[in-house]
């Protein structure tokens, strides 16, 4: 591993608890809704608390690609959301340099609009200005490979196959430089050729920018991309170190 330089993310003994509210359903008739409002959400009792992250600490540095592995529900995505600032911590602190971003532009896209308009919309949503969008547009279309079988970029996104749509989404998300980029299972989509290209792109992003976090259940991808891996289990770090050691230990434990 190349000598790590400046820190990009410091996670200090973080605990995160989800509170799940019962009883009060989302909708209902107007009278029920009104009575819920005037009784100040009286039906909103905390029925369960899920302690998703229990005392996680680590530091990430510029130029690192860090794999996050662990079983379903071990807290990987929760941890990423907290680093991105979308989830409050119960105790502990998370410091970041720049703005960590999740690779998740798909939420901004609209299925009824053409791929072309979605590229523009997605780039603007990530904070680019119009001139930047114009500059990266050809690269995005080229990278997504949408036009390889014909001029599909003019068609509404609802007409795309799920693989095509996923490729376009990844291409848009990966077009921007990020200080800290977090990729949550985005690599599971697309055909083998596209997966290869995505991995290359992630390596580029890491070199250009700062730190890349990758959540994946595909140990091969983790080995390809990440030099360092953190193994989470039930909200606790079981291991944090060179990918080969950690992933081997993880595989043995299965």
């Amino acid at each position: 591993m190349d000598a790590p330089s400046r820190p990009t993310v410091v996670v200090d003994n973080v605990h995160i608890t989800y509170r799940i509210y019962g009883a009060a359903g989302k909708k209902g008739n107007a009278v029920a809704a009104f009575s819920r409002i005037i009784t100040r959400r009286g039906g909103r009792k905390v029925t369960r608390e899920v302690h998703a992250i229990r005392g996680v600490s680590f530091t990430a540095y510029e130029g690192e690609a860090i794999g996050l592995i662990g079983r379903n529900g071990s807290g990987k995505s929760t941890l990423l959301r907290a680093i991105a600032g979308f989830l409050p911590t119960d105790s502990g602190a998370i410091y970041t340099r720049g703005q960590p971003s999740l690779l998740g532009v798909n939420a901004a896209l609209m299925n009824d609009l053409s791929g072309e308009r979605n590229v523009v919309l997605g780039c603007l949503a990530m904070g680019m200005n119009r001139a930047e969008v114009k500059r990266v547009y050809p690269d995005i279309v080229e990278f997504s490979g949408i036009n390889e079988n014909g001029p599909f970029i003019d068609l509404p996104m609802r007409t795309y196959s799920s693989g095509m749509a996923a490729r376009l989404r990844f291409a848009i998300s990966a077009a921007k430089k990020h200080d800290v980029l977090m990729i949550d299972e985005a690599l599971a989509t697309g055909d083998a050729r596209f997966q290869k290209r995505s991995e290359e792109r992630i390596r580029e992003l890491r070199e250009e920018a700062g730190t890349v976090f990758v959540v994946s259940h595909n140990n091969r991808s983790i080995r390809e991309i990440c030099a360092r891996t953190i193994w989470l289990d039930r909200g606790v770090i079981l291991a944090d170190g060179p990918t080969e050691e950690v992933v081997s230990a993880y595989e043995k434990a299965q």
């Binding site: 530091t59 606790v236 944090d240 170190g241 060179p242 950690v246």
Partner: peptide, 11 residues
Amino acid sequence: ATFTPGLPAQP
């Protein structure tokens, strides 16, 4: 913080 395989964190 970085290389402690098998250990939970840096207290």
